[in-house]
Structures are given as C-alpha cells and as structure tokens.
Simulated scan of single mutants.
Amino acid sequence: MKKNHHMSILRPFLILTVLFSFHHLSAQQQTITTSPPNNFWNNVQFGGGLGLSFASGYTDITISPSAIYNVNSIVAVGTALQFGYVSAKNDYTSTIYGASLIGLINPIPQIQLSVELEEINVNTDYKYYGVSDSFWNTALYVGAGYRTGNVTIGARFDVLFDENNGYYSDAFMPFVRVYF
C-alpha cells in the first residue's frame, strides 16, 4: 500500500516535470527560428593597403584594394588586388599585378595579426641589358600591426622569400592597412 501511495505522489510531479521540459524546449526552438537572419554585407569592410619603400635610388610603391568579411570580432578573412611599381635607378623598372587571400586575427582590439598568400605577375625591364622578363611570384606573409580605429600600421615577413629567385628585394615589408 505504501508503494502505491508513493507512486500517486510521484506521478503528478513527473507529469509536471515532463510538461515544463517540453515547454522549455519549445521556447528554445522558437527563439532560434525567430532570431533575425545574419546579413552578409553588414560584416564586410572595404579598404586596403599601401606599401612604400624608399632607399638611395630605389622606389617601391604598392596599392592593394581589398575587402574582408568579419567572421566575428576577432577573425576576418578576405581578398585583395595588388598593383605596384618598382624602380631601381639605372638598373630596372617593374610593374606588377596580382591577388591575395587574407586572414586577420585581432586577439585584442589594438593588435592585428595577419597571414596573406599573394600571387603576382611581375614584368621587369632591365635598363642596362635592354631585356625584359615576365614571371609569377608567390609569397606567404605573416605580419603584425598596431590597430587604432580603422587603421593598422605594422610589418609583414615573407616566409617563402628567396633572394635569388623572386620579385622583392627583402622579406621584410612595412604596411599601412585601412578598412571602412
């Protein structure tokens, strides 16, 4: 008899627990289905980079418009186009064009880490020899910069750099990156 008495007390408690559980699950499902959709374009920023390098008789100017997609407040991915001009006085001039894939990580708002895979076409005219050369160059940059607002100032390093075979004269390159 005592066993039936415990079951009669437990039964309403179990029924109420199950009902409240389903109500809770139903509320969670409604929250998920009624949340506003993620708008892709709200997470896209446009901007780019500017690279300048000057030495005695040497000029390197690079303009790189780009677009990034902010995955969240820490990670962004994107692509860039690149156009450039290099001149070494009385030696050569080069024009370049190409594209890059970019990954940005902001561990804290003021620091931006970057990885960039770049593929560019290089057209060079050697003044002294009177010959021209055209080739593709691949670079893999890792970089870091100080970020304030929409501007990041920093430096990047080409881990694939080969001084005997490539476009750039140095693996290290400063940059200014701006996104709006």
Rank of each mutant, 00 (worst) to 15 (best):
V44Y: 15
V44L: 14
F46E: 05
F46M: 06
G48H: 12
G48F: 12
G48N: 11
G49A: 05
G49N: 14
L50E: 06
L50R: 07
L50H: 09
G51F: 09
G51C: 06
L52Y: 01
L52N: 03
S53A: 08
S53N: 11
S53K: 13
S53F: 12
S53H: 08
F54I: 03
F54E: 03
F54T: 00
F54H: 06
A55M: 11
A55W: 04
A55V: 00
S56V: 03
G57N: 10
G57T: 12
Y58E: 02
Y58I: 11
T59D: 01
T59F: 06
T59V: 10
T59A: 05
I61D: 00
I61Y: 03
I61R: 00
T62C: 04
I63K: 04
S64T: 11
S64N: 04
S64E: 10
A67F: 04
I68K: 02
Y69C: 03
N70I: 06
N70L: 01
N72E: 00
S73D: 14
S73C: 03
S73R: 08
S73Y: 14
I74V: 13
I74L: 15
I74S: 11
A76D: 01
V77N: 10
V77K: 02
V77D: 07
V77H: 10
G78L: 01
G78Y: 01
G78N: 04
G78D: 00
T79W: 11
A80H: 03
A80V: 11
L81Y: 05
L81N: 07
Q82I: 12
F83M: 11
F83V: 13
G84D: 01
G84L: 07
V86I: 13
V86S: 08
V86G: 04
S87M: 11
S87C: 10
